[in-house]
């Protein structure tokens, strides 16, 4: 898993980030920040929700305690992703490399890395994070500079871009995996409770997200445990494993590329027998490097 394949897989994220960070830049300037302030924020933080919330608090002169608490609550999910990505990292990854990887641990970079069939190497992840980081920073700069000239209606429309991206990650695997569909529906139902029910909605959105995420994943783990060794291949074909399902469209740019394209298209092919799946998996590993980004 080499650097350049990481870069290639990072391109769709970079494009997605351009829109989102553009919105961030625009909204910061609208709140009264000078153009380089959101830029500095993007360069040092490299996170979506946290930056929006943090700059909001700074602009509204919120207390420092509130700022710290909000940042911890919003970013606590990264600690969970850290555990998960740690499981997936190549055994040869050095300690200092983990410190570098940590900076690029965003929702999307994590999602791309974790859906790889092989272990994630440092150089691969570095490729993903540098590419997406470039999009994040340049989008912020463009947004901050253009913010004053854009019509209100366009700004409002950009507000939904980030959510659209998340929807595109979550929905496709629900078609083939009852487990993921259950987790998603549980999380949505709980999140709505925390938003609308008086009393419950006093909880900050950061905490609500953590509680909903943990509770729904627990339900998934209890009722749909994934057996790692004996039937992993079959579950991959079923699309149980994260993201392996979503590379249906062959039009390249549209999705994170995955080496697993040919064995994940369970709509077109009958579900693979374990043996066939194993063969395909071995093939993947062997040809992995040359076939990365196969979706293009």
């Amino acid at each position: 898993m080499r650097f350049k394949y990481g870069c290639r897989d990072g391109i769709p994220i970079m494009l997605g980030y351009l829109t989102v960070s553009f919105t961030f830049g625009v909204s910061c300037v609208a709140k009264g920040f000078v153009w380089w302030m959101p830029l500095l924020c993007s360069v040092t933080n490299f996170t979506g929700t946290g930056q929006f919330a943090g700059m909001d608090l700074i602009a509204s002169a919120g207390s420092v305690a509130e700022l710290i608490a909000t940042m911890i609550v919003i970013n606590a999910r990264y600690a969970l992703m850290g555990v998960s990505l740690s499981q997936k990292l190549d055994g040869k990854t050095r300690l200092w490399q983990r410190f570098v990887i940590a900076f690029g641990l965003t929702d999307e970079n994590y999602a791309v890395a974790i859906r790889k069939p092989q272990d994630v190497t440092f150089s691969y992840f570095l490729g993903v994070m540098l590419t997406s980081f470039a999009g994040w920073v340049s989008g912020t700069l463009l947004g901050a500079l253009a913010g004053n000239f854009l019509p209100e209606s366009l700004l409002s429309a950009f507000g939904i871009a980030l959510y659209g991206m998340f929807i595109a990650i979550v929905i496709p695997p629900c078609r083939t995996s009852k487990a993921i569909a259950t987790v998603v529906l549980t999380a949505i139902a709980m999140s709505c409770l925390f938003y609308y029910v008086p009393g419950l909605n006093k909880l900050s959105s950061g905490w609500a997200i953590i509680i909903c995420g943990i509770a729904s994943a627990l339900i998934g783990a209890v009722f749909f445990p994934i057996q790692p060794e004996d039937n992993k291949e079959k579950q991959i074909a079923d699309g149980v494993i994260f993201g392996s399902q979503s590379t249906q469209d062959n039009n390249g740019e549209k999705d994170f590329s995955s080496d697993r394209n040919d064995i994940s298209m369970s709509d077109n092919n009958e579900i693979y027998s374990d043996e066939k799946g194993k063969k395909a998996d071995t093939y993947c590993k062997k040809e992995g490097d040359s076939r990365q980004g196969g979706a293009q």
């Binding site: 929702d107 695997p173 609500a208």
Partner: peptide, 27 residues
């Protein structure tokens, strides 16, 4: 197995909760 499954499902849970219902008020 349960712990692994938990981490497999976690991103879906977190992302879903992040999107709904706030997406309805994002514009």
């Amino acid at each position: 197995v349960r712990v692994l499954s938990f981490f497999e499902y976690l991103p879906y849970g977190v992302l879903s909760a992040m999107v709904f219902p706030v997406v309805f008020y994002s514009t």
